[in-house]
Nucleic acid binder design. Structure first.
Length: 467
RNA sequence: GGCGGCGUGGCCGAGUGGUUUAGGCAGGGGCCUGCAAAGCCCCGUACGUCGGUUCGAUUCCGACCGCCGCCUCCA
């Protein structure tokens, strides 16, 4: 049984399933007004790994993640670029999925869009107003936070201390500084939908309540996102659900920051690197490995050094795949993973698989899970050094590595990459020179290849080139 | 001001009240190799500071120092 840290309690406890064998998850997705940055990439990877591990464990998963396609940022960008809001949202949503595909993040089972749920949101807000927990002002409708039992649950502090630190903007008509907007009245030129309060648009915190409950139902298992969503976003979602008398998420999971030079990466600090940029320059799998190398709740530094470090780790895994010509296991049906030879595997293999599972089940301890994998890598090589790459025990161990990596969404690459004709003929020339024991010529050719960016290895069939 | 997190060997980064090590990267030595590369073997007595509990603490408790974050849009 998977145990996970729960933001609501501050403890690690079992992820209880409302429906046995089936896990329902809602993860807050992107607001599509700009390129995704590394922080988006991290949360997407963290929850992708969670989802894959649940599938790997034989569970069914209903994974829902939204796209916020109506929002002030989108409106601002559209105005600045003299485009429609829909046009801006469509462009950046497309860029989002490109990045997700590059990262190997599985598509959600459902991807609700805020604009598709406006009528339901209006109903919710009207209902809240009817119950007297929401009130109208000149610019919108707000929720009265002090009417909510347990407000502050996810912030992990009581309402009073939250209120003490709250900043108050001038000219606000809110009754309490923590009250938040449910509905925004449209200004001229802004996109709008009809409502009892006149034309307007929903506030950000409302969409996820409506969409998660609609698609997953009351009392769904897990709600997640980046740490910065815990408060106020998730707190406010929960507040609405509570006020509406609904049973909301039973478990809350939040991942830690991407840091830059010791500071949180964020839009407001302007210190962000776009995910699109990183994926264009580096092996996308390196970012996944980098994310997996630290615990999901710890901050991670993403720098050239840490990315390079991850790439070298990846090289070690790919090296194993090359030696054993391991197939790409990622294409296997997500729920159909079978741990290679679990029954027939050596005790050492079974032990490593057990350690992998135990690590993952204890709050997704991916660093320890990776340690188990790397130990298998060493042993596969070690056994093959004695019995050759066809040695059944070595092959089985290597296969286990591929399966476990697959469970983490990390495909291994056995190929050496495209080798151009000129380089291939140089390699052939070198092999000829080596057969003639003309070492000077062979080494000169190798130097040329290395200068051309190749890694040159002597394999059983002669020179092997790879980038 | 309130609340929370973190401080592990050159770097990254798990974990644990003591008996044998996380793991990766880098570095040193050896094996293999025509030489390399890849791979294998061996190597580093690390746990912020000061106290306390304990037979024994990096691991528990307290204080302190330092760093980071949330309380505002933010993954």
């Amino acid at each position: 049984m998977l145990r996970l840290h729960d933001t609501a309690t501050g403890t690690v406890h079992p992820l209880v399933q409302r429906d046995a064998g089936r896990v329902s998850i809602y993860v807050c997705g992107p607001t599509v007004y700009d390129l995704p940055h590394l922080g988006h990439g991290r949360y997407a990877l963290v929850f992708d790994v969670l989802r894959r591990f649940l599938l790997f464990s034989g569970l069914e998963v209903h994974y829902v993640s939204n796209v916020t396609d109506v929002d002030d940022h989108i409106i601002d960008r559209a105005a600045a670029e003299e485009r429609t809001e829909a046009d801006v949202a469509a462009e950046y949503e497309a860029r989002w999925w490109e990045a997700m595909d590059a990262l190997g993040v599985l598509r959600p089972d459902d991807t609700p869009h805020a604009t598709g749920y406006v009528a339901d949101m209006v109903s919710l807000v009207a209902g809240l107003q009817g119950r007297g927990v929401a009130y109208e002002t000149s610019d919108g409708v707000y929720l009265s936070v002090d009417r909510i039992a347990g407000y502050g649950l996810l912030a992990r502090q009581p309402l009073e201390s939250l209120r003490a630190g709250a900043r108050v903007a001038a000219g606000e008509e809110k009754r309490s500084p923590l009250d938040f907007v449910l509905w925004k009245k449209a200004k001229p030129g802004e996109p709008s939908w009809p409502s009892p309060w006149g034309p307007g648009r929903p506030g950000w915190h409302t969409e996820c309540v409506v969409m998660s409950l609609d698609l997953l139902g009351d009392g769904f298992d897990l709600h997640g996102g980046g740490q910065d969503l815990a408060f106020p976003h998730h707190e406010n979602e929960r507040a609405q659900a509570v006020a509406d008398g609904r049973d909301f998420a039973h478990h809350w999971m939040h991942n830690g920051w991407v840091m830059v030079g010791g500071e949180k990466m964020s839009k407001s600090l302007g210190n962000f690197t776009s995910l699109t940029d990183l994926l264009g320059r580096r092996d996308p799998r390196a970012y996944r490995l980098l994310v997996l190398r630290s615990h999901y709740r710890s901050p991670i530094e993403v720098t050239d050094v840490t990315v390079s470090d991850a790439e070298k780790g990846l090289e070690r895994l790919d090296g194993l795949a090359r030696r054993f010509a391991l197939p790409d296991v990622l294409d296997a049906a997500p729920g159909g993973f079978v741990v290679a030879g679990t029954g027939a595997a050596t005790d050492a293999d079974a032990d490593a698989v057990a350690r992998f599972n135990e690590a993952m089940e204890e709050d997704l301890d991916t660093p320890s899970a990776l340690a188990a994998i790397f130990e298998l890598v060493s042993r596969a090589h070690s056994v093959a050094d004695g019995g050759g790459p066809r040695d059944p025990a070595a092959v089985r161990t290597a296969g286990t590595v591929a399966v476990l990596c697959g469970a983490l969404g990390l495909p291994l690459r056995a190929g050496t990459g495209e080798v151009d004709d000129a380089s291939a003929s140089l390699a052939a020339e070198r092999d000829q020179a080596r057969r003639e024991r003309d070492w000077d010529r062979a080494d000169a050719i190798r130097d040329r290849l290395v200068a051309g960016g190749w890694t040159v290895e002597d394999g059983p069939q002669g020179t092997v080139l790879r980038r």
